[in-house]
């Protein structure tokens, strides 16, 4: 475990070097948030609650969604994908560590880093600008934290799969872009999934992505019953396991390709 902790620590430090970019990103997120704030304000003027959401809940949803989204930065995936494409991944095979494990550790380091230096600043600023709804009770909040962690595992496992797919492709950027667009949309990053037309919502709930943003936030805002909350957690756990195992399998096949064909 110690080794993985070391990897997490290193990627944490690496990110510290990019303070200026972080500040710009923060400003960018804030601007986007202000745009959607006013947009939803105009929308909620016509009707005080839509699909069980009040304006305040909506803003809380969006702020937290932005914050969760910010936890997932791409560098770890990019690095792995580039390593795979350049064929440098063979070097990593010589180390006595599990590569998926290292990937999770590094992602975790980055997320914790984002959480501490970036999300806290973001949340302080937004909480002072807008009214944020606190969680309904400690139970909901602890459920929310668990759901968020499961969401992290799902997102990272998806990232790993995306990177590993690069064993078969030459291009990194396009794949990541498409993945990012799909995930953020179907995770409910821009809008609670219940706002979508029924058929689209159904599709989204079948896919694993809702576990990243929509599920934890539904729990936080307690728009659903306890029974459904428990259901969501089970669903997330299921997906987390499936995705990790799938990633491992694809990785095995890809590595065999490299070992046999020499990249």
């Amino acid at each position: 475990m110690n080794v993985y902790l070391e990897f997490a620590k290193r990627s944490f430090q690496k990110l510290l070097a990019y303070r200026m970019s972080m500040a710009f990103r923060l400003i960018g997120f804030l601007v986007s948030l202000i745009v959607v704030y006013y947009l939803w304000k105009a929308i909620f003027i016509t009707s005080p609650t839509i699909e069980g959401y009040s304006f305040k809940m909506m803003i809380t949803y969006l702020i937290l969604s932005f914050a969760i989204n910010a936890l997932y930065d791409l560098p770890v995936e990019y690095e792995l994908a580039n390593k795979i494409i350049r064929g440098d991944v063979a070097m990593d095979l010589t180390k006595p560590v599990d590569l998926q494990g290292v990937f999770f550790a590094e992602s975790f380091g980055i997320s914790v880093n984002q959480l501490i230096i970036y999300n806290i600043a973001f949340l302080i600023i937004t909480a002072s600008l807008f009214k944020i709804q606190p969680p309904a009770s400690l139970t909901e909040f602890s459920f929310f934290v668990v759901s968020l962690l499961l969401g992290f595992i799902i997102m990272t496992a998806i990232g790993f799969i995306t990177a590993v797919i690069c064993f078969w492709t030459k291009d990194v950027w396009g794949i990541f872009f498409v993945k990012q667009a799909m995930v953020t949309f179907f995770a409910g990053a821009f809008i609670p999934l219940c706002f979508l037309p029924k058929w689209l919502e159904n599709i989204a709930m079948v896919l694993p992505f809702h576990g990243v943003i929509y599920s934890p936030l539904s729990i936080y805002l307690s728009t659903i019953s306890f029974y459904k909350m428990a259901n969501l957690l089970v669903n997330q756990t299921f997906w987390a396991i499936i995705l990790i195992v799938t990633g491992r399998m694809i990785w095995r096949v890809g590595i065999r390709r490299v070992v046999i064909q020499g990249g």
Binding site: I43, T46, I50, I191, F195, P197, L200
Partner: peptide
């Protein structure tokens, strides 16, 4: 999606 819920 939003305009499915509200008119303007």
């Amino acid at each position: 999606a939003v305009f499915e819920k509200i008119p303007h």
